[in-house]
Computed example of a mutant assay.
Amino acid sequence: MQGFSAERPLLLMGCGRMGHALAMGWLRAGLAPEHLYVVDPGAQPGCVPTVADGHFVTNAAKLPPGLKARVILIAVKPQVMGGILPLLSSFADNKTMVISVAAGVPIRVLEEGMGVDATYVRAMPNTPAAIGAGITGLTAADDIAEADKALARELLHAVGETVWIAHEADMNAVTAVSGSGPAYVFHLAECMAYAGAELGLDAEVSMQLARQTIIGAARLMDEETDVSVAELRRRVTSPGGTTEAALKVLRNPDRGLVDLMVRAMTAARDRSEELGG
């Protein structure tokens, strides 16, 4: 991973699940351990085992004086951003790119909180990033340099796929679709298992069937990338068969799954907007 040095390192603020996944992904991708600094008040240094000695600190004040980062990636909860941003401003300048993965926090809040003429990028990854299978939406001002845009993609690609979002206003919808999306899939497994138990199956057997069905279907979508999901659905659906009977319920125009998902994701988008102030 190019673009970092001892003089212009990569600084990670926050080493929870997402921060840890990113750090490990960067190191696997070839980032030199001495070019990474990690700040987290609660985690133990061993959570990023190959980071260089003295590069894992519990307080930003313990970072080397005069350090200027090439990239500062902030992976903390949105509720604490207001207190975190001023602590990081001394490590940024006009050659720094600041990337935030905090849901709902707009770029203007980053700019005002840091008070530095840096490049600001907003990112929305999701929890499958922990196993390198995530997807991240990225957005920035229209005048972002192509080199910065490419570097932001490279950093988030370490934990999965990336997609560039042209308009920041659409990031709340990204949060609703993919940021919160894994929870919808997990809940679908819960619902399928519950329904199977209601039909008389042993609860554990029903959950095993539901989990593996979702895992298998996801793997099939991943393998058959040249086939639309609509076509994959049609291949399972024989005319007049059992699947068609179930889909008639799920596709009811007034109270089917589409209507439910639109209402659910609208609520997620609206909450994301509220978090952003």
Results as ranks from 00 to 15, higher is better:
277 G>D: 14
165 I>S: 06
203 A>N: 05
149 K>L: 11
14 G>M: 08
46 G>E: 14
140 A>C: 07
125 P>F: 03
190 E>C: 02
188 L>D: 00
36 L>Y: 05
240 G>W: 12
274 E>P: 00
24 M>P: 05
20 H>D: 04
161 E>G: 02
198 E>Q: 15
185 V>F: 11
244 E>I: 00
34 E>M: 05
146 E>K: 00
93 D>E: 04
121 V>T: 01
26 W>R: 05
220 L>Q: 08
43 A>I: 02
10 L>A: 14
245 A>Y: 03
271 R>A: 08
233 R>G: 14
44 Q>W: 02
2 Q>T: 15
107 I>Q: 09
220 L>K: 02
255 R>F: 07
138 L>T: 11
131 I>G: 03
25 G>A: 10
149 K>R: 15
88 L>P: 05
56 F>I: 02
8 R>G: 03
136 T>V: 06
172 N>I: 04
251 R>D: 15
232 L>A: 09
121 V>F: 02
135 I>L: 12
100 S>K: 09
258 V>K: 06
51 V>S: 06
182 P>G: 04
96 T>C: 03
141 A>M: 12
30 G>Q: 09
142 D>E: 14
108 R>N: 14
116 V>T: 08
16 G>C: 02
230 A>H: 10
46 G>S: 09
17 R>C: 07
18 M>I: 10
267 A>S: 15
150 A>R: 10
134 G>W: 02
89 S>G: 13
235 R>L: 07
96 T>G: 09
60 A>V: 03
251 R>N: 15
264 A>E: 02
21 A>S: 14
258 V>T: 03
238 S>K: 13
264 A>K: 12
15 C>W: 01
137 G>V: 10
249 V>I: 12
132 G>H: 07
107 I>L: 14
73 L>R: 06
212 Q>E: 03
119 T>P: 01
233 R>I: 10
216 G>D: 03
221 M>N: 09
158 A>D: 08
5 S>D: 15
211 R>A: 03
269 R>T: 08
214 I>V: 15
130 A>K: 09
219 R>G: 09
40 D>E: 04
186 F>H: 10
125 P>Q: 04
261 M>V: 08
246 A>N: 05
151 L>A: 12
56 F>T: 06
139 T>P: 08
115 G>I: 01
268 A>W: 06
73 L>A: 11
167 H>C: 04
251 R>C: 14
76 V>R: 02
114 M>V: 07
16 G>N: 12
233 R>P: 13
121 V>S: 03
106 P>N: 01
224 E>R: 00
228 S>L: 06
135 I>A: 15
62 K>V: 00
238 S>D: 00
257 L>T: 13
4 F>K: 05
259 D>E: 13
241 G>C: 05
